[in-house]
Amino acid sequence: MEDIELQQLWKSYDERLQEQLVFNRKNASDITKMKVKSTLSAMRPIKIFTLLLGILWVLFLDVLLINLFPVGNFFFLISFGFISLVNKIAVGIYAYQLILISVVNINSPVISTQKKIAGLVSSTLWVTRILMLQLPFWITGFMSLAWVINGNILYWSIQGALTALFAGLAVWLFINIRYENREKRWFKFLFGSYEWTPIMKAQEMLGQIKEYEEAN
């Protein structure tokens, strides 16, 4: 009789322990979800600031191009026209990222939120890669036809070296700015901590939530 009572008592204790574990996991999952939302929301101000700054910069470039079009030289118009185009694309990507951050719902399935985070990661990489393409055009934009025609060896040496350097750097960055290189020092220096780190934290926390849900 005592053995039966002892078994029942042990079974009851085990059931309560399991219930407590499930409850703790659920609480941990809910808290982590709120942290994910808070981490992403904290990115909104810098995204809004960058977006507004980008819009003002694009407007300035377009006004400059329009006003100088009648007198502007070929190199200036082509170079700064490309710079303006690249920044317009960047503005569009930042607007897309703000929408992604706004539609994140902590009560949605983890896989749905993971897709949105993946969209933030991918778009952050792409906007940086695209912006790097403008580097050599900051050098060619200040060339003039007179300099091209009358330039001496010294001019062409400096101009050619700078253009080749910035073009090579732009191509290298465009190729190497990838998720696989995220732990490299130059990558961390380039991205800083305001935009990239919160995304990585949110991604890591989503993995924890998935583990909690699978354990339940």
Rank of each mutant, 00 (worst) to 15 (best):
G81H: 05
I117Q: 05
G54H: 02
L125C: 06
F142C: 01
V171D: 02
L68H: 12
T113C: 07
K115M: 12
I101A: 07
W156S: 09
W126H: 05
A170I: 04
Y96R: 11
A170S: 12
I149D: 05
I78K: 01
I106A: 06
A161C: 11
E180A: 15
I101W: 00
L64W: 14
P109Q: 00
L165Q: 08
D62M: 13
I55C: 12
G141E: 03
L65V: 04
A170C: 04
P70N: 06
T124Y: 05
S122M: 07
V86D: 01
A164D: 03
N176R: 10
V148Y: 09
I111V: 14
A161G: 00
L165V: 10
N176C: 08
I55L: 14
I78E: 00
S157C: 03
N176W: 03
A167S: 15
A90V: 14
G54Y: 10
S102W: 01
I153H: 13
N73I: 01
I83T: 08
A161H: 05
T113K: 02
I158N: 11
L100V: 13
V110F: 13
T128G: 04
V121Y: 11
Y94R: 12
L51P: 01
G119F: 11
I153Q: 13
K88F: 13
E180W: 09
V86S: 11
I106L: 08
L162Q: 12
L53Y: 11
F82I: 04
N152M: 04
Y179V: 04
Q159W: 14
L77Q: 09
V103C: 03
W156I: 03
S79C: 06
A164N: 03
K88Q: 08
I83D: 01
L59H: 08
V63D: 07
S157L: 08
K88R: 12
L125T: 03
I99L: 09
F174H: 07
G119V: 03
N150M: 03
F60P: 06
F137T: 00
I175E: 08
Q97E: 15
L51K: 11
P136I: 06
L65C: 05
S157E: 09
F142V: 10
N107V: 04
I66F: 11
V63I: 15
M132H: 12
P109L: 00
W138P: 02
F60H: 11
W57I: 03
I158L: 15
K88G: 04
V127Q: 11
A95C: 09
Y155G: 05
F74S: 10
A146V: 05
V171H: 05
W172P: 00
I93G: 10
T128S: 08
S157N: 04
N152L: 04
